[in-house]
């Protein structure tokens, strides 16, 4: 576990509290890039507990976050020149919002950390600032009842903390809203690619093997030619669902995610077939079933990454999407195999 952000320690009531840096070094930035590419992402965490930033005293503010290193880094870099206490909950290395959904960033863990770190002996106020998205797991009135600490929900983004403080600890409507702009969607694409990549490789391998089958038995040449074509088409469906659909999300004029993926796939398949037609009509038609099925499925999975889909909505979408995807993939595969024999 990385600890080079600790730059000193503060002795208070005979306990030693680590003082952390408000500066992100090369290692922190590299770590963030790796996490975005799903490298070491599930083990990118720090020790829970109380930390100090700057020179906090008994009147300083207490900010709470998760023990996912990216969350922690976001908070400390935005507390530059703001002497504060940082209380880290044990969320098993998961970010605030997701951990709150799971309950690890929750009432119980917050109460436990408040008591374990003897917060009442460290500060002489009863105010504790949480990221707004932590509200999914934390019940402010229960925390108050048990610990006496009054939970104040701060802004969604740590970068708004200085404004939040200047604004008498009130988050404006803008600061309370979760947006999902283009740049943020793009940042999340690498993890989507890595997450779905193994299925793409598997599908391509299956098509390479099947492509050799024809009326004269099995041909390695045909396996290569047909497999290569299949690879291009599958890759197109993959990229359509994993990258283009998330990037263009609000601009595709349908609400269901699987439909967003399917519409893009039709456009892309149309272009590819027009410029690089297959060996038969059957094969050409087959791609209009397979590519949309692939793209729709992957785009549908982006509901989990997006910041605005409800469970009820996704369930409704899936009731239609899953059967359609299975039927389309099946019809497409049958047509494609028939195409091998013509």
């Amino acid at each position: 576990m990385q600890t080079d952000f600790i730059v000193g320690s503060l002795q208070l009531n005979s306990v030693s509290i680590p003082v952390i840096s408000d500066f992100l070094n090369f290692g922190d930035i590299l770590g963030a890039i790796k996490a975005r590419w799903a490298i070491n992402r599930n083990n990118y965490k720090i020790n829970p507990g109380l930390y100090a930033i700057g020179k906090p005293n008994e009147n300083s503010n207490i900010f709470v976050t998760a023990n996912y290193k990216l969350s922690f880094d976001h908070l400390r870099k935005n507390l530059k020149n703001i002497d504060s206490w940082i209380l880290i909950l044990d969320t098993k290395g998961i970010n605030v919002w997701c951990a709150a959904g799971k309950g690890t960033f929750g009432t119980e863990e917050l109460i436990k950390q408040i008591q374990q770190t003897k917060l009442v002996e460290i500060v002489n106020h009863k105010k504790i600032i949480l990221p707004q998205l932590g509200a999914v797991g934390v019940s402010a009135h229960d925390v108050k009842k048990i610990t006496g600490f009054h939970v104040i929900y701060g802004p969604v983004k740590a970068s708004d903390i200085p404004d939040f403080i200047n604004n008498k600890f009130t988050a404006s409507r803008e600061m309370r809203t979760v947006f999902f702009p283009f740049f943020e969607r793009i940042k999340l694409i690498p993890v989507e690619i890595i997450g779905h990549f193994q299925y793409l490789i598997f599908a391509i391998a299956v098509f390479f093997i099947l492509a050799g089958i024809n009326s004269n038995g099995y041909s390695v040449d045909k396996a290569f030619d047909g497999g290569l074509k299949a690879m291009v088409m599958l890759l197109a469906g993959f990229l359509s669902g994993v990258a283009i659909a998330p990037a263009l999300l609000p601009y595709i004029p349908v609400k269901q995610f699987f439909m967003k993926g399917a519409i893009l796939a039709y456009i892309i398949t149309g272009l590819l077939i027009y410029f690089f037609p297959g060996i038969s009509l059957f094969e050409n038609i087959s791609w209009f079933f397979i590519v949309p099925a692939v793209s729709a499925f992957i785009a549908m999975n982006f509901t989990g990454t997006s910041t605005y889909t409800s469970l009820s909505g996704v369930l409704k979408e899936m009731k239609l999407a899953i059967p359609l995807q299975i039927i389309f993939a099946f019809i497409g595969l049958v047509l494609w195999i028939i195409g091998r024999f013509i």
Binding site: G101, L133, H141, T303, G304, T307, S310, L311, S312, V314
Partner: peptide, 25 residues
């Protein structure tokens, strides 16, 4: 998006929602 934050933080228990993650996977 049915995150459940409102219901969780309503001391009067005036809000109900079936919370969950809107995640197809």
């Amino acid at each position: 998006m049915e995150c459940g934050a409102c219901a969780k933080n309503c001391a009067q228990e005036a809000i109900s929602v079936k919370p969950g993650v809107g995640c197809a996977a």
